[in-house]
C-alpha cells in the first residue's frame, strides 16, 4: 500500500504513514478549517490499510508503531483522533502487535489528560513520552 504523507500547515498536523516501515506519525496542531475534509481521507486510508493488517502483519514479529505528537488539537479534531485510535484498536483485534506513543510537552496537562482519556476509551495502553518542541 502507498505511503500517506500530508505536510503540516499552521493549523493541520503532519501525517506520515509508512506501511513498509510500519511507522505511523501524526505531529503538530490540529484545528483545520474543515475538519471532515482534512480527516476523511486519513480515515479512508486507515480503513484501506486494515485489509493489509489482517492479511500480512498479524503474524509478523515487529509491531505497528503509532506516534502521536500533538501540540494541540481542537474539540472537533478530538473526535477524529479517537476514531483513528479505534481503527488502531481494530488492527490489534485481528492480531497485529501495536505500540502507541503519545508525546507530551513538559507541563502540558491538557495533552496528557487527553491521552489518558483516549487510552481508557479504546482500551489500548499508551507509552507516554516527553516532547520538548517549542510553540
Amino acid at each position: 500500500m502507498e505511503k500517506l504523507f500530508i505536510e503540516a500547515t499552521k493549523s493541520t498536523p503532519t501525517i506520515n504513514f509508512n506501511p513498509q516501515e510500519k511507522y505511523f506519525e501524526i505531529a503538530g496542531q490540529s484545528r483545520p478549517e474543515n475538519v471532515s475534509e482534512f480527516f476523511d481521507p486519513i480515515m479512508n486510508w486507515l480503513k484501506e490499510y486494515s485489509y493489509e493488517v489482517s492479511a500480512a502483519t498479524a503474524t509478523t514479529e515487529s509491531p505497528l508503531t503509532f506516534e502521536f505528537k500533538f501540540d494541540y488539537f481542537n474539540s472537533a479534531s478530538s473526535k477524529y483522533v479517537l476514531d483513528i485510535l479505534k481503527k488502531i484498536k481494530e488492527y490489534q483485534t485481528v492480531g497485529a502487535r501495536i505500540e502507541v506513543y503519545w508525546y507530551v510537552e513538559e507541563g502540558d496537562e491538557d495533552i496528557q489528560a487527553a491521552g489518558e482519556e483516549m487510552s481508557k476509551i479504546v482500551k489500548l495502553p499508551f507509552i507516554f513520552m516527553e516532547n520538548l518542541d517549542e510553540l
Binding site: V35, A76, S78, K79, Y80, E117, I121
Partner: peptide, 20 residues
C-alpha cells in the same frame, strides 16, 4: 462527561463535535 461525549457524539454539519 467529556469522556462519554467524545465517544458518543458525531461531527455536525458545521464541523463541530459539540465538545467546545
Amino acid at each position: 462527561t467529556h469522556k462519554r461525549a467524545i465517544d458518543e457524539t458525531q461531527i455536525s454539519e458545521k464541523g463541530g463535535a459539540g465538545l467546545g
